[in-house]
Structures are given as C-alpha cells and as structure tokens.
C-alpha cells in the first residue's frame, strides 16, 4: 500500500488518462491484483460485493493481500480460507447480524493467521474519503476515548482553530480496488443505482481500479444520464462484464441476495467449520470451468426468483 499521499498522487499522474477500451475477461482483469497488494473491496456486507472478481483472485492463488472493506460478509471467509489474505481492515466482519459471529473469522483471527485492524464505520469511510481527496488524513468526532484508537493508528489532536479534541484517521491509498456496479461502458464510465456506499471514494483513492458490471452499456447511454455516473473512465483500469456478478450477494434493483444459499452456507460452516468453506470453495470457486458454469450452479429458476423478489421491493 502507498502510505504517502505525495507518492500516491505521483502514481496517478503517471497513469494513462486516455479514454480507451478497457473491456476484458475477468481472468485478465484479475492480473491487476498482485501478491501483497492492499485490495479495497467495493459494496458493503452482502450488497454489490464484487464476487466474480473475488473468485478470480482466489483462483489465481494471489497471496499476502491486505483486504479492506466497510463491512465484510462471508466473502472474507472465502478469502481467509483460500489463503489470499493476511490482514483485514474494516469496521465489522461476519455474515450479517442474523447469522451471528463468523466462526471462520474467529478461527483465523484468534489463531493469528489473519490480522484484523478495526475502525468505526465512519472511521473507515473517512479513510477512503481522505484517499479520494488526496490528503494525508481527515478529522472526525468518532472513536475518541475508545480502545479502537489504541490499536488502529488513529491519532488525537487539538483542533488548530477551536482547540477542541479531534480524532484523525490516516488516508487509505489502496493498491487496487475491485468494485461491482449495475452498469458501465467499455471505457470505465460507471453508473450505480441505489446505495452508493464508498465506491466512488475507493475508485479515486486506489492506484488501480477493476470494475465489474452487470451490463456493459453504450457511452451514449451513459451520456443520457451523466448525473448517474459516479466514477469517470480515467479512474478505471479494467472493465469486466459480469451478469449476476455479485451473486449470491445482492445487486440493488436487479436481484436480491440468495438468503436460502446463505442459510445453507451457514449450516455447512456450523457443521464443518473451515473444512466446510474448503468444500464451498471447491464447489463454487475452483470447480466451475467458466463464469457461466458458476451461475449454472444456482439454477435459472432460483436466479429468477431473486430477480422477482428484488422487483417486488418497489412494486408492493
């Protein structure tokens, strides 16, 4: 990870800023994630998780990653068990409140196999924001007086204007960001529907940006709704077409999360622990020969049911 905002800026200046075709297959895009990188993951918990790219990164056997995310769901289980990640930077890890504390996270963090750096949710948001702004830190009124500050590297200072105490969070300049969205053109102009999360900040803060999109649309289509664009082409290095690219997590407006799959996954982990996740990786990550072989595992009727339930959200 780039620690210095001056270096981070130089890295961006040196990039090719031209509007060029960046559409590529997922396996090509995944080469932008290198051993030892800090990889920022877009979306949040089980919403707009770049699952297609996470599977690709795992398949490539990338090692020594630091993975950061606002909140992790069970994609962190997958990355931990695959041995891709040494360190996680986040505010929260587990599937979702409903399924309790992640056994896998516990196993890896308690066993010292993964280091966990914890921030408040506002804190980690601001770290990406500072990176997006190109400044070394940002102040907040969160985390003061807590034990989080003792371990995560936040610092306290007296405000030079008011004398009040502030908590300062250091900017995050990830090596690479992986982000899943509803649509993008082949140049990397990215549009998002629903909650934007911190993806726009991730894209601005990171040295390299991989975007997977449910749909690759024409640039004319992007231009008709330029106000929907949250990431401009020059921030993006790779564009990948990935229908159901967040599945079994959700993509707002298109499909809801496959909660039945979540329950089954949780049962498997409850029964078999780490071995259960190994089986899961074999079945869903290493096993399927292609992107569409992966989707096939979820069956069309099931996929469409979750498409339907997503539509019901705005019709009922």
């Amino acid at each position: 990870m780039v620690l210095d905002f001056v270096e981070a800026r130089k890295q961006i200046e040196a990039k090719d800023h031209s509007m060029r075709d960046k559409l590529m297959p997922p396996e090509e895009a995944a080469k932008l994630v290198r051993d030892g990188d800090h990889m920022a993951i877009g979306g949040i918990m089980y919403s707009r998780t770049p699952m297609a790219m996470i599977r690709e990164v795992i398949r490539r056997g990338v090692k020594g990653l630091t993975a950061s995310r606002l909140l992790f769901s069970f994609e962190s289980d997958m990355l931990f068990v695959a041995g891709s990640v040494d360190k996680a930077v986040t505010s929260w890890i587990s599937m979702a409140v409903t399924w309790g504390v992640s056994k896998i996270m516990r196993n890896y963090v308690e066993g010292g196999k993964v280091k966990l750096e914890e921030w408040s949710h506002a804190g980690i948001n601001l770290r990406y924001k500072a990176g997006a702004m190109g400044v070394p830190f940002l102040p907040t009124l969160s985390m003061l007086g807590s034990d989080l500050m003792k371990y995560n590297g936040a610092k306290e200072m007296d405000c030079p204007f008011t004398g009040r105490k502030l908590c300062l969070v250091p900017a995050l300049y990830p090596d690479v960001a992986v982000i899943h969205v509803q649509r993008a053109d082949r140049y990397g102009n990215v549009q998002v529907d629903g909650m934007p999360f911190a993806d726009a900040d991730l894209a601005r803060a990171s040295g390299r940006v991989i975007v997977t999109a449910e749909e690759i649309v024409s640039t004319d289509r992007i231009r008709r709704e330029g106000d929907k664009t949250v990431i401009p082409f020059f921030c993006v290095d790779a564009v990948v077409e990935a229908p159901f690219g967040s599945y079994p997590h959700e993509c707002p407006g298109l499909y809801q999360a496959d909660y039945e799959h979540f329950h089954r996954y949780a049962d498997t982990v409850a029964k078999k622990g780490v071995d259960g996740v190994k089986e899961y990786l074999q079945e869903y990550v290493y096993g399927p020969a292609s992107y569409y072989d992966y989707l096939q595992k979820f069956h069309i009727a099931n996929l469409m049911k979750n498409v339907g339930l997503s539509r019901r959200l705005v019709s009922d």
């Binding site: 505010s91 929260w92 504390v101 963090v109 007086g145």
Partner: peptide, 26 residues
C-alpha cells in the same frame, strides 16, 4: 463488541464496531 481477552491475541474475536462506536459517540 470487539474482543473477549486481549485485542492482539483474543480469546474470542467478535464482529467489531460497525457503526456502534459512531452511534454512541455522536
């Protein structure tokens, strides 16, 4: 909501703050 035991070598690692710290701070 972070750890039971020592932070660096927890006996039980819990999910973490999420927005809880921000909520109780503000």
């Amino acid at each position: 909501t972070s750890v039971i035991g020592d932070f660096e070598h927890p006996k039980v690692r819990l999910p973490g703050s999420g927005g809880a710290n921000d909520i109780s701070s503000l």
